[in-house]
Write a protein that binds this DNA or RNA. Structure first.
Length: 508
RNA sequence: GGGCCGAUAGCUCAAUUGGCAGAGCAGCUGACUCUUAAUCAGCGGGUUGGGAGUUCGAUCCUCCCUCGGCCCA
């Protein structure tokens, strides 16, 4: 039996000496009639606002009466003297120094000063002044403890560098890592900008089911769950696609949705089981229109976030100025491997190339065109990694694009594009299939793959076919991976750095 | 799924052919009413991720497990 288990504790977690000391301080405060988890602190001014309000003052121009202020935040630095102390208070990512003197606080000083710790949350009221060294400071006339922190913060200088701890205890990471706070503020700005952009372009934002009786709109394994009252199986959506197109049938001409998709797949620096996508559909438009819209969105977004269309991503300098480069899928592969057009769909030739480059040969999968996997392997290994500057890949063969509409000019090619930036697949768009009979045939063919073991093939959605039978106008649709876009614009190579709470295994 | 790397005090990190596990910050005690990573003096703090093996002796070597990071698939 661990001796620590015998010590007083309010929870199941073991306590360090630090915690025991802090809990004792907290209990002392209670005995003196001070609530360590104080009341609300109304009419508080943010430190950001206080700094803005006083930023033009200098020690020479500060005249009586000096401004007063009422702020609140967490003590992140603490410099104590005999009967006075300086503390740095943090509110959001902003910091302000307060100066607390026994002779100004009277009896309150002794009660509080001895029991304050780094990490405590306080409210302070006082008068603005400059110290000898010119630091803007609040001379405190009233100080209240708003929340006692009974766990010590990480090293005030080194912060939290253990990646695992930063993901698992994001609350601590946010307190001590200004960069982390900044990423999520930026993420919010990005999403807000996209919404405004889409609204300005005549799209309306909609919300469609996250729980679907028939998962569809992508090739991926879904998460499943159960609805008790209706006693039915439901699936967390892998894409909103089929619902959004139903809305186009219903007469909405431009819709978008920014929300989570769920795919029951592995976790990596580029994949999280739940991730955020924007999907949007425009009736009467073509995938060419969507490419233009995407170029415009990305370059104006870069201007908004960075004040420039030039951004840094890892070792690369990337220009998001439009237009973006366009290349053909097959030609890109052909160029990389010195193939002639008659080799493009020749399985033996493609396998030969893979062998010669010592690349893995994919296994044939039931119900899936083998050539698609061969081409994709070549594409992913030789083409994607070098697509650093924004590039639209177009001209995808029908064999690897089961959801897209065939081109009128060349039935073997689809009217589809994918956008790559910094080696990341960022967007995927195409002209939508609107022939209900062809749609049904593709559903049934996918059903066959499904029955022969392809767990990524979705089941037929007969209601969607019925919707198409009422008539879907020619429509172009696109999905943009929001997490990857945030990675790009915040220069992060792991998706976990742009998710507040990435999925991790349970703690040991 | 595979390879490499990592897990030591609350945090950041040391250490030992295999021989009492150390520092800085944080904490505690004391001094100090203009500091800003405050300073000065003193003190306490460890199941070295978990388990097994080898050994007189394991934080260190071997094996298994857990969690994470990076790369590959």
């Amino acid at each position: 039996m661990n001796s620590k288990k015998n010590l007083p504790t309010s929870g199941p977690l073991e306590q360090s000496e630090h915690e025991r000391v802090r809990r004792q301080k907290r209990d002392q405060l209670l005995l003196r009639g001070i609530d360590p988890y104080g009341a609300p602190f109304p009419n508080r001014e943010s430190i950001e606002s206080l700094k803005k309000r006083t930023e033009r003052l200098t020690p020479d121009t500060l005249i009586e009466p000096a401004p007063t202020a009422r702020i609140a935040g967490r003590i992140v630095l603490f410099r104590k003297f005999g009967k006075a102390f300086f503390a740095t208070v943090q509110d959001e990512s902003h910091r302000f120094q307060i100066y607390v003197r026994a002779d100004l606080l009277g009896e309150d000083y002794a009660d509080l000063a001895d029991s304050l710790d780094l990490g405590d949350i306080v409210g302070a009221e006082g008068v603005f002044f400059f110290t000898k060294t010119g630091e803007p400071t609040l001379s405190v006339t009233s100080l209240v403890l708003l929340a006692k922190s009974v766990r010590p913060l990480p090293d005030k200088w080194h912060g939290l560098s253990d990646q695992e701890a930063r993901y698992r205890q994001r609350y601590v990471d946010l307190i001590v890592t200004p960069d982390t706070h900044h990423i999520f503020v930026t993420r919010s700005m990005i999403v807000r900008f996209i919404r405004t952009f889409m609204d300005r372009h005549g799209f309306i934002e909609v919300e469609t089911p996250m729980m679907q009786p028939t998962p569809g709109g992508a090739l991926a394994r879904p998460f499943s769950t159960h609805h008790n009252a209706l006693d039915m199986e439901l699936y967390l959506r892998i894409a909103p696609e089929l619902y959004l197109k139903r809305l186009i049938v219903g007469g909405m001409t431009r819709v978008y949705e920014i929300n989570r998709n769920f795919r029951n797949e592995g976790v990596s620096t580029r994949h999280n089981p739940e991730f955020t996508m924007m999907e949007f559909y425009a009736a009467y438009a073509s995938y060419e229109d969507l490419m233009s819209l995407t170029e415009s969105l990305l370059s104006s977004l870069a201007m908004e976030i960075h004040g420039s269309t030039e951004i840094q991503f890892g070792e690369h300098r990337i220009s998001l100025a439009h237009p973006f480069r366009r290349i053909s899928y097959l030609e890109a592969i052909g160029d990389a491997f010195n193939l002639s057009p008659e080799d493009y769909f020749n399985n033996e030739r493609l396998i030969e190339v893979l062998r010669s480059k010592n690349l893995p040969i994919p296994e044939a999968r039931p119900g899936k065109p083998f050539v698609a996997d061969l081409l994709n392997t070549l594409f992913e290994l030789a083409v994607e990694p070098v697509l650093i500057q924004p590039t639209f890949v177009i001209g995808y063969p029908k064999a690897i694009s089961p959801l897209a509409r065939s081109s009128q000019a060349d039935p073997e090619i689809t009217d589809r594009f994918e956008l790559f930036v910094g080696g990341l697949e960022l967007a995927n768009g195409f002209n939508e299939l609107n022939d209900p009979d062809e749609q049904l045939r593709r559903f049934l063919s996918q059903q066959e793959s499904r029955l022969s073991g392809d767990l990524e093939a979705p089941p037929p959605d007969y209601d969607y076919v019925r919707a198409l039978e009422f008539g879907l106008p020619p429509t172009a649709g696109e999905g943009i991976g929001i997490d990857r876009l945030v990675m790009l614009l915040t220069n992060r190579t792991s998706i976990r750095d742009v998710l507040l709470f990435p999925l991790l295994r349970p703690e040991a």
